[in-house]
């Protein structure tokens, strides 16, 4: 039941994109094509889960014993950057098909604030390892859902008359606002 609640809360109520504003750049950049959105979402899911678990272990076994909590930001981001680059090289060599579908998005993920955001959030919420792992999955599924839905809508934008000044990013943002409004409705589920 708790796990169910965690998932519902992270995917719908506190959607990482639409309610917590994390990961907006890829959201707007990648949502023009549904296949790209799925690829990006899956890559983000992969990286978020991996990064959250690794940074959690580093926090627990290196930073906490030495009282280095204040270096959290710099240590986390360096670990994430190195991890992403390593995974990219690894996939390219060892699993080329996976590289073709996910790997091309990896270089774009280092600066995705959703990854660092989730890694820091689970520390601030003081989750244990298992809950952190589940939360990472739930949050990135929420990201995937939002970005794929958005791409589905934005594909239709191509065939719609939109005023010149609203084309591109502005219409994407307003669209995101309307989606966020729709997601607000899920707040009623948990109160």
């Amino acid at each position: 039941m708790d796990i169910f609640l965690l998932f519902i809360s992270a995917i719908f109520v506190n959607n990482i994109l639409l309610a917590q504003y994390l990961g907006n750049c890829p959201y707007l950049g990648c949502s023009k094509e549904k296949s790209v959105a799925i690829g990006m979402g899956a890559a983000v899911l992969f990286v978020i889960v991996l990064a959250t678990v690794i940074t959690f272990l580093i926090q627990k076994y290196i930073m906490n014993p030495f009282h280095l909590g204040y270096l959290q930001t710099i240590i986390f981001i360096l670990v994430i950057a190195a991890l992403v680059q390593f995974v990219e090289m690894f996939l390219k060599k060892m699993v080329p098909p996976l590289y073709k579908s996910l790997g091309i998005y990896l270089p774009l993920i280092t600066t995705n604030c959703a990854v660092l955001g989730v890694a820091i959030l689970v520390q601030r919420k003081e989750f244990d390892l298992w809950t952190s792992f589940l939360y990472a999955i739930a949050a990135s599924v929420g990201f995937l859902l939002a970005i794929v839905l958005m791409a589905g809508i934005r594909e239709r934008f191509v065939v719609t008359r939109i005023p010149r000044s609203m084309q591109g990013v502005p219409s994407g943002l307003v669209m995101a606002g309307i989606m966020s409004l729709a997601f607000l409705a899920f707040k009623g589920m948990i109160a």
């Binding site: 943002l173 307003v174 606002g177 409004l181």
Partner: peptide, 12 residues
């Protein structure tokens, strides 16, 4: 939602 819409309209 207001944040998204507001920024979108400013950009427009």
């Amino acid at each position: 939602p207001g944040a998204f819409v507001c920024l979108g309209i400013i950009l427009a």
